[in-house]
Nucleic acid binder design. Structure first.
Length: 845
RNA sequence: GCCCUCGUGGUGAAAUUGGUAGACACAAAGGACUUAAAAUCCUUGCCGCUUGCGGAGUGCCAGUUCGAGUCUGGCCGAGGGCACCA
């Protein structure tokens, strides 16, 4: 039998799509639009299996929506600024732009081999000045709106990458990319005022009902809203300072206060700058690392001042004021009041410095002899030992009542506090978007005039191993404007800025005088389905949401607040790991299976240790090169396999056996196709094909439902069922028209999954135009016969095939003829019968 | 410590949302075809007696129900996020 030539077929169709511009899109106002977007890749050189999975999932959806009649926007671009280009440049003395561009052209070729339905006319690249010019405009626009500012701030400094990192980029106290332990440095930085929208970004999550809950919860926690009260504590014994304000969520525990504690960076500290002991203490605090363990294990230490803080609820109650290492300057007001009885951290501190521990919340209304030992009580209860607050239900009544009192007495105000901090966007790197700012001779910042945009990156022939390259470009830095001398800002923007608006650019990628066209954006936005890895749950997704807020802010032409209507986070691609006897990682390519054992290829007597299945990574050498796989098995086989084993949101395990079986299955489908076309050619008139029609419609329903649920793995199972149905039934001499009509519907329904194969088969049947998603007919799905489960006491004892909608009596009559079931029924009387028509009968004896 | 998610065969998983548990696939074992191998196809899959039948069975323990993988409560385990957040 003729074999399916995937290579030729796939090449032909890819050429056809390219020449016919099949996937080129433009606004069509009479059509419903669908913006399908996958997170664009960083051009590292080669695509990896993660890309294959991500873009296959997106392509299935894009092709399906397009068949359904939507006007689908499915673009692709390159997140092409960033560290790897710069590192390659520094290490191998390459030009970052050339390096990046050659990577892009290679990856583009690889992506095309996957047969993706992408509108390549909309391709964008963030390192192109056509792109970053508009980013600089946005920067200045945000500056004008007061959403960008510059300040000296303690920042996360990555000593390896030699750059500042955003809080979101510090993971367990280490740089997200370099893994180096992050240091604290005070630097002048540009910030985006993301906290201005804390409330909006939090509230907006409620409307994102097509987002995974997990991601929404992560963002919610990251924004970290807490409700409480700002309380002012008068200070005694001080010429310098009259009061200290604290934010608290538990003002109702004020009577249990036994100390005030402030951060070493608190304004109060400037009065102790010359105090030797304080300086020593400050040093001790910063010596504590920023890693997870060191923080968790860090002892709570304090520096006692001579100040006394006065309890606002009773001015006879006075407590010492400490500097303490556990108080953070950048949360709340950098000061806390300590209530040891009901906060473990405060209790640890109080026990160390022998401070008062008095419970003010008791689990029972009558506190009796309720005492705190070395575990703080944080549960609910009733207020006690608190004068006029006594007896209030805590925390449900007590917090609000206390705030009301404090507000009335002008001792405090209710306040909502957020954990979210402003987004520091300055990076001391070369390969990024220059910040369009000039400094005059006094060091004041000025916007680069609009007509001077873009601020082009200078083309550097050589990058020094360390430091900020732009800072060393003396000539580039100097600018003369209106007879005055200026120096350019030499920091570049965090590359997360680049990806915060690229979805807008995709709507009108060629627009010259602005980043996007409002008409186009109004038609295409929001992104209907965004697909990517969950690792961007906070960083990229939160920044993009902020950017949309910022662009819509003070803007009559735009009121879109959420860029991504639907979000899907796909799982990772995993592979077994292998090690040799010396514990070196071995790649799957070096391995051979001999007698069921995995051994080294070069010397097949040495068995390798098979390690756990882990996500593909270069360091573990368990990656598989997609291009090789596509060349060996074809794009359709790769698509089929990457979708088949696990649901798309979960991790999938790549295996040689799996891809082989997928490619064999394509062959089987081809063989089936030949048998079906032959049967059509024979032009039978015999079999009306009632069961064939029923099967087809049931199949179409399954595919449609599963496509809408992202149950792509089940679709592959459905296709296997389809194959086995036709393999068995094809000799039934179905009437040719019926067979053809139904088979065409099935082929169309396969187009999103295995487009080359389906297009080829359809083409051979002369179906070339007006291909639409086949609708299933619900009325054809009805079965004439049903299997009724016969249960006795809830246990399945038999199956009965009957006509649909038979009466209970008929079932019982049938049961009475069944010896196997009667042997149970004869044992005792029937107490009860539950009959669910067309499903089951349960007889209780 | 806090928050979230998930526990189904040797493996990846399915289950119309409370109604036949294990669809579909991978791996394994046995068989058919073949001189042989590959390829292809078929069968098996936990326990008990011979087919057939019966029993147990969706992490564990309870509960609701005629009926629970699915709902409720408790426990155990795995993964992920946050973390001195006041």
């Amino acid at each position: 039998m003729e074999r399916y030539n995937f290579k030729l077929t796939e090449e032909n169709w890819q050429k056809f799509w390219e020449q016919k511009k099949t996937f080129t899109t433009k606004i069509e106002k009479n059509k419903k639009k669908f913006f399908c977007l996958e997170m664009f890749p960083y051009p590292s050189g080669k695509i990896h299996m993660g890309h294959v999975r991500n873009y296959t999932i997106g392509d299935v959806l894009a092709r399906y929506k397009s068949l359904e009649g939507y006007n689908v926007l499915h673009p692709m671009g390159w997140d092409s600024f960033g560290m790897p280009a710069e590192n390659a440049a520094r290490q191998n003395n390459l030009n970052p732009r050339e390096w990046t561009e050659s990577n892009i052209s290679n990856m583009k070729m690889q992506l095309k081999k996957l047969g993706l339905s992408i509108d390549w006319d909309r391709e964008i690249s963030t390192c192109s000045s056509d792109y970053y010019k508009h980013q600089q405009e946005f920067f200045l626009e945000l500056y004008d709106k007061g959403l960008v500012y510059r300040k000296e701030e303690y920042v996360n400094w990555d000593p390896v990458d030699q750059t500042v990192l955003a809080n979101e980029q510090v993971i367990d106290g280490k740089g997200w990319r370099s893994g180096a332990i992050v240091e604290r440095r005070k630097l002048n930085q540009w910030f985006f005022n993301i906290t201005k929208f804390s409330g909006e970004l939090l509230a907006g999550l409620n409307d994102l009902n097509e987002w995974p809950n997990k991601v929404k919860i992560m963002q919610k926690n990251w924004i970290g809203k807490s409700f409480g009260c700002e309380v002012k504590f008068a200070i005694e014994n001080s010429k310098n300072i009259k009061s200290i304000s604290c934010f608290t969520t538990r003002p109702d525990t004020l009577f249990g206060m036994s100390f005030l504690a402030v951060s070493v960076d608190h304004p109060l500290s400037k009065f102790y700058e010359n105090d030797k002991k304080f300086k020593e203490f400050k040093k001790q605090c910063s010596a504590t690392g920023t890693t997870e363990e060191s923080i968790a294990n860090a002892e709570k230490i304090g520096f006692k001042t001579d100040l006394l803080g006065i309890n606002p609820l009773d001015n006879k109650l006075k407590v010492p004021v400490y500097f303490a290492n556990f108080v953070l300057m950048d949360y709340g007001l950098g000061a806390v009041f300590g209530c040891p009885a009901h906060d473990q951290r405060d209790l640890d501190f109080a026990l160390k410095y022998k401070l008062n521990v008095m419970p003010v919340v008791s689990p029972k209304l009558e506190p009796g002899d309720f005492k705190i030992d070395n575990k703080a009580y944080t549960g609910p209860g009733y207020i006690c030992n608190s004068s006029f607050l006594n007896g209030l239900k805590s925390p449900s009544e007590s917090i609000l009542k206390t705030i009301e009192y404090l507000e009335k007495q002008k001792l405090g105000v209710r306040k909502i506090n957020f954990r979210l901090k402003d987004w520091g966007v300055s990076r001391q790197r070369y390969w990024g978007c220059p910040i369009p700012i000039l400094y005059d001779e006094d060091g004041n910042a000025h916007k680069v005039p609009k007509e001077m945009l873009p601020v082009q990156l200078p083309n550097l022939s050589k990058l020094d191993p360390t430091g900020n390259p732009l800072d060393k470009e003396i000539e580039w830095k100097k600018v003369k404007l209106g007879g005055k001398n200026y120096l350019r800002e030499t920091d570049t923007l965090d590359t997360f800025v680049d990806s915060s608006w690229y979805f807008l650019r995709f709507c009108s990628p060629q627009k010259k005088n602005y980043g996007f066209d409002y008409e186009e954006v109004k038609y295409w936005m929001p992104v209907d389905q965004y697909i990517g890895g969950v690792e961007h749950a906070i960083l990229h997704l939160l920044y993009s949401r902020f950017f949309m807020q910022a662009i819509s802010y003070k803007n009559d032409q735009m009121d879109l607040k959420e860029p991504f209507k639907g979000l899907f986070t796909q799982g990772m691609v995993c592979h077994e790991t292998y090690k040799d006897t010396k514990n070196n990682w071995i790649s799957p390519e070096e391995i051979e299976v001999v007698k069921g054992k995995k051994v080294l290829k070069k010397n097949n007597s040495i068995e390798v240790k098979v390690g756990p299945i882990e996500s593909m990574s270069k360091s573990k050498k368990n990656t598989i090169d997609p291009e090789k796989i596509i060349n060996n098995y074809g794009a359709d086989a790769v698509r089929l396999f990457i979708l088949s084993d696990s649901p798309p949101e979960k991790d999938v395990q790549w295996s040689e056996e799996g891809i082989i079986s997928s490619s064999k299955f394509i062959q089987k489908l081809w063989t089936l196709n030949l048998r079906i076309t032959q049967a059509i050619d024979k032009n039978y008139k015999k079999n009306s094909g009632k069961d064939l029609i029923k099967f087809t419609h049931k199949f179409l329903k399954k595919i449609t439902v599963n496509l809408n649920n992202f149950s792509y793995n089940v679709i592959i199972a459905n296709i296997h069922e389809m194959h086995s149905f036709f393999s068995k039934e094809i000799d039934n001499e179905y009437t040719a028209e019926t067979l053809k009509e139904n088979y065409i519907k099935i082929l169309i329904s396969l187009m999103p999954i295995i487009p080359h194969f389906s297009c080829e088969c359809l083409n051979l049947l002369n179906i070339k135009k007006n291909i639409k998603w086949p609708k299933y007919d619900e009325s054809l799905l009805e079965e004439d016969f049903v299997n009724i489960v016969i249960q006795i006491n809830g246990k399945k004892r038999g199956l009965l095939k009957t006509k649909k909608d038979v009466l209970e009596k008929e079932i019982i009559d049938n049961i009475n003829k069944d010896n196997n079931i009667m042997k149970y029924l004869n044992r005792s009387d029937i107490k009860k019968k539950i009959y669910i028509p067309n499903k089951l009968i349960n007889i209780i004896i």
